[in-house]
Design a protein around this nucleic acid. Structure first.
Lengths: 337, 337
DNA sequence: CTGAAAGCGCTTACAG
DNA sequence: CTGAAAGCGCTTACAG
């Protein structure tokens, strides 16, 4: 069943059928009705590949998890963002193509070439560790791209992320108002942009409150539980040890809590802890974990609209910082030192 | 840059270039080298739409989250399965197309038509609640389909799921060996196939051990925390109340634990609990939760191979049950009644 | 081993 | 308002 069949059945030309299907206005109401009815009856659907070959757009958006040590589908933060993105971009009429990086990785990874191969209308790039240069190439091309947690700079690119400095400021302020003055920070890897933004926010906030920054109270982990555990052990060896700890991920907070308990101390009575991410387990841990929640819904939704505007040429490259929120539970205490 | 350009530059015909790119063998080594070199130099890539229009296959697999109340990308179990599936099917040379259901849903949802529109090579169908008839239509078509947690019956379809009866048998046996004789079950919705399989397994296992089944010890929830809490409150009102509880999800187990604690009782000393899913929070809850872990890796990977075989016509419709595993933590106790 | 030609199923100026 | 025709960029018999 092709457009030719429909044209024949309706007694019109293929061009006319095509126009009707694409909502052109210069067609008589009578012809339109007849054709539409036949389309309805037959259940005719145009073929994607023929449409794409002939027209330019595909209404297809690529989803790229960038980085060699790459966050995959299961990443708890990004999956929520991508889900919200998918919903919104779906409303706008786009489907999603997920590149399978496997084969691809073995050869030279050329994201741009793959986008061109499928003639994607745009793509969303999820940040990972150890970003490939192929991402830069894509970014600098004229394919519309939106980065999540990664700063894209191309003329047809934009990015969106949580305001990580702000998040740290909120945490430090919360600790400060609860009376804490000795506040440590367990960061992500030293070369992680996100972790560094959080660190800078932490330092800036301490300065603002006139609290001097102690280098030995800044530890580095890898966002995982074990690294938080080890970082906390280092912190506890110091005299005095910090009475409040802010970690760049919830998992590291869980690790820190484990270390604190092992030392015979209590959370939050001896050491207060605030994490980052608000993963599901925060509600069920002992104690329940105070943490920073990123507005994943909003990030995903905004990414969809920003990409759409870029595609429709309605806008220049844009970038947005989204407000974080502190979710207060048991782990952060509230006593005066 | 098209195949025409490459042909011109190499001084051969388009047909020859096409053959070389598609690994035909009836081409002289010399021509092959020359063409390949030019392809390399120019970075030429064929256009997906032209290839698809002309050939039949797309190397594209559709991912469908079925059901009106539909599990989305963020579902903790399915996301792991889909991730493993993506990796394996990627190795086999396929990319993934995620249908955006939004627009689509408003009209009559026609999965089959959409698959045909994109000329997908096959698809994977993730079970949800309240499955549409459009899924049946897809299942019965001759497009290769693999269902996860959903029994497909078409001649080109297969399915894969955890052996849910077996899982229940393992749980009941574990309780039995720990000395428990009064074992309750908190199920999913009454019309949920998965929940029912687990229920039947539970009943069968009780029978096997000569323990009589008490209808009032079977409660129904909706897999969420609150429903587990309420179901447990009902169970605790009974005299005697059960000393061991098996729930069809971890979240319901957390709800049950909350109810038990609220009643001034202890887990596992007064009531032992075993959940289902092994979500991340099980490791951090108080007490940590004993639970059934499904082999998501294996399910995803098998789904990929099964679908591949179906596509390549190497196999008839197949279906597989995957072994579950009991992960023992603190909540299940181990004392004699 | 190589190429001319038809065809895949659409869309888009263009002419009427 | 409608249609003939060219074209999108490939692949695939088929002939040589």
């Amino acid at each position: 069943m092709t457009i030719k069949d429909i044209a024949r059945m309706a007694g019109v030309s293929r061009a006319t059928v095509s126009k009707i299907l694409n909502n052109y206005t210069d067609v008589s109401e009578k012809t339109r009705r007849k054709v539409l009815q036949i389309v309805e009856e037959t259940g005719y659907q145009p073929a994607f590949s023929a449409q794409t070959l002939s027209a330019k757009r595909t209404n297809l958006i690529g989803v790229i998890y960038a980085g060699n040590i790459n966050a995959d589908l299961t990443h708890p933060f990004f999956v929520e963002v991508v889900n919200a993105f998918k919903k919104q971009i779906g409303e706008l009429g786009y489907d999603l193509l997920f590149f399978s990086n496997e084969k691809f990785r073995n050869s030279q990874e050329n994201y741009l070439a793959r986008c061109q191969y499928f003639r994607l209308d745009g793509c969303i790039i999820i940040n990972g560790m150890d970003i490939e240069t192929a991402i830069t190439e894509l970014d600098q091309s004229d394919l519309p791209c939106i980065g999540v947690d990664i700063q894209l700079t191309g003329k047809k690119s934009g990015f969106i992320m949580t305001d990580n400095r702000k998040a740290s400021a909120i945490v430090v302020e919360h600790f400060y108002l609860a009376g804490y003055r000795s506040i440590a920070y367990i960061s992500g890897q030293r070369d992680c942009d996100i972790g560094n933004a959080r660190k800078e926010g932490y330092i800036q906030a301490l300065n603002q409150f006139g609290i001097s920054v102690r280098e030995e109270w800044i530890q580095y982990g890898d966002y995982r539980e074990q690294s938080g555990y080890e970082a906390m052990k280092h912190l506890l060896k110091q005299r005095p040890y910090p009475r409040a700890v802010y970690t760049a991920s919830d998992l590291m907070a869980f690790g820190a809590i484990r270390a604190i308990k092992e030392a015979g101390l209590s959370v939050p009575d001896d050491v207060a802890v605030i994490g980052f991410d608000d993963i599901h387990a925060c509600q069920y841990s002992d104690p329940t974990l105070t943490t920073i929640r990123q507005n994943k819904e909003k990030i995903g939704k905004l990414a969809a609209f920003m990409l759409f505007d870029l595609i429709k040429n309605q806008v220049q490259s844009s970038n947005v910082m989204v407000e974080p929120e502190l979710v207060i539970r048991q782990s952060c205490g509230g006593r005066v030192e």
